[in-house]
Deep mutational scan, measured.
Amino acid sequence: KLLSSIEQACDICRLKKLKCSKEKPKCAKCLKNNWECRYSPKTKRSPLTRAHLTEVESRLERLE
């Protein structure tokens, strides 16, 4: 599967780190437990900047 097509777990399953069936409108866990089942939009991760990478590398060197 391509990364862009990976389905996201519902908010509660993601928060509780449960295996989500990803069914809509309610996944199996939410249906069974009568929880409100919501699927928040995916958040875009910002790409690493060179400055951040350099900072992490220098912190790693100090720890070694």
Rank of each mutant, 00 (worst) to 15 (best):
K24R: 13
R14H: 12
L53Y: 07
K22D: 10
L15V: 13
L31E: 13
C10P: 08
K16T: 08
P25H: 11
Q8D: 10
S4A: 08
T49C: 06
K19V: 07
P41K: 11
R50G: 02
K16I: 08
V56M: 05
R59P: 04
K22C: 01
R59E: 05
L15S: 14
C13P: 02
K24Q: 13
K24A: 13
K17Y: 09
K16M: 01
R62G: 08
V56L: 10
K16G: 06
N34E: 11
P25F: 01
T49H: 00
K24I: 12
S5E: 12
K26F: 05
K1G: 04
V56D: 03
K1P: 10
R14N: 11
C13Y: 05
I6E: 09
I6N: 15
K42W: 03
L63D: 03
W35S: 11
R50W: 06
L48A: 07
L60I: 09
K1I: 15
K26W: 04
K42A: 07
L53M: 12
L31F: 10
R50P: 03
C30G: 05
L3S: 15
C37A: 03
A9Y: 10
S4W: 12
E64C: 07
L18Q: 14
L48G: 07
L31Q: 14
R38G: 13
L53N: 04
K44F: 10
L60K: 05
S4H: 14
K22P: 09
R62Y: 02
P25N: 03
L60F: 00
L3F: 12
N34Y: 03
R62H: 07
C27P: 02
D11E: 09
T49I: 02
K19F: 02
K17G: 02
L31K: 07
K26Q: 10
I6F: 12
A28L: 14
R14L: 08
L18H: 00
C10Y: 05
E64K: 05
L48P: 01
T54D: 09
L18R: 12
K29L: 02
D11T: 01
V56W: 00
H52E: 02
K16W: 07
K42V: 07
S21V: 00
C27Q: 00
K16C: 01
I12Y: 12
S58Y: 02
L18W: 11
E7Y: 15
R59T: 08
P47G: 06
S58R: 15
C10T: 09
C37M: 03
T49S: 06
K44T: 09
E36G: 10
Y39N: 00
L18Y: 10
C27R: 10
Y39K: 09
P41Y: 02
K19Y: 02
P25S: 10
L60Q: 05
L2E: 11
S58G: 12
L3N: 15
K1W: 13
L48K: 03
L63S: 05
T43N: 12
A51H: 12
L53D: 00
E23T: 10
S5V: 15
A28S: 15
P41R: 10
K19L: 03
R50K: 07
A51Y: 10
C13R: 03
A9C: 01
S58H: 12
K19R: 12
E64P: 04
V56R: 07
S21C: 08
A9T: 09
C27M: 04
K26C: 14
Q8P: 13
E57H: 03
T54E: 05
S4L: 10
E55H: 13
S40P: 01
S4Y: 13
A28I: 14
E64I: 00
P47R: 00
E7W: 13
R62Q: 05
L15Y: 06
V56C: 04
E7V: 15
L2P: 12
R50F: 06
K16F: 04
L3T: 15
R62S: 05
L31C: 13
C30E: 06
K16Q: 08
A51E: 01
L2F: 15
K32A: 08
Q8L: 11
S4C: 14
E64G: 02
L18D: 00
L31Y: 11
P41V: 08
R62W: 00
Q8W: 15
T43V: 15
Q8V: 15
R50N: 11
L60N: 14
Y39S: 06
S40K: 09
E57G: 00
S46H: 00
P47L: 06
C27Y: 08
E57V: 04
P47N: 04
C20W: 08
C30W: 05
R62E: 00
T43Y: 13
P41Q: 06
L2A: 06
D11W: 01
